[in-house]
Write a protein that binds this DNA or RNA. Structure first.
Lengths: 109, 109
DNA sequence: GTCGTATTACGAAGGTTGTCAAACTACGAC
DNA sequence: GTCGTAGTTTGACAACCTTCGTAATACGAC
């Protein structure tokens, strides 16, 4: 304990490198309606968003779970800002690895 | 019994209509490595293919299962031809419902 | 330090998925 | 008719996924 502001750094969040992002994982991450909704909101979303801003119809722990799946698949980037966890779409990385995929998903009915 | 060539017709295969194809189902269907491999082969594939032509590293029943998932998601169309079951990508339907998705998936690493 | 907020971690229930083997059905060739 | 080939169906199993509640943690404000 002790070290006060180390904690934020201590809470490490795994993010795959750009070239570690796997198509299967991304598709799988996007195949859940709640996660799709998160991604759509992030895409519409003008700015990075805290988890709480999404107002999802699930419990807090389930929410954490879905954000983790998206992050570990490489779809979103997350970082701590005070007590909140901000999320941002990894649009550039996705576009580099699977060109057109994200926009096709967002554009679909 | 009796009616000889009725049987092929009797074995009905469910296919969703074009406008029943759901994004989540398609993404989920494509998120499995074996199914992705099937789709890639079909896309490269010049012609409709029988299941056996794929030479997949799984048992027959598992094979049946994967083809069914693809068919019920609306990704492929299947029909009987003698003792074989032929498969074909529903490229037009997919393109109409989720433009660019299939080619993005096929183009990805 | 204490308190409140945002979030994570743990553990469990319930459902779905991928896999197989064994038994079965449908068709074509003979 | 019989035989072989292609595929299905059933039933099983382990692994995973989604969900939750509860307990714990990290930070900001006081």
């Amino acid at each position: 304990m002790s070290r006060t502001s180390q904690a934020t750094l201590g809470r490490r969040l795994y993010h795959p490198d750009r070239d570690e992002i796997r198509l299967e994982s991304v598709l799988s991450a996007l195949s859940d309606p709640i996660r799709l909704r998160i991604v759509r909101e992030l895409a519409r979303g003008h700015d990075d968003m805290a988890c709480i801003a999404f107002d999802l119809p699930v419990s807090k722990s389930t929410c954490t779970h879905h954000f983790r799946v998206l992050r570990e698949a490489g779809v979103i980037h997350q970082y701590y800002e005070g007590t909140s966890r901000m999320s941002r779409l990894r649009e550039d990385d996705l576009e580099a690895r699977m060109p057109g995929l994200l926009s096709a998903v967002l554009g679909a009915a």
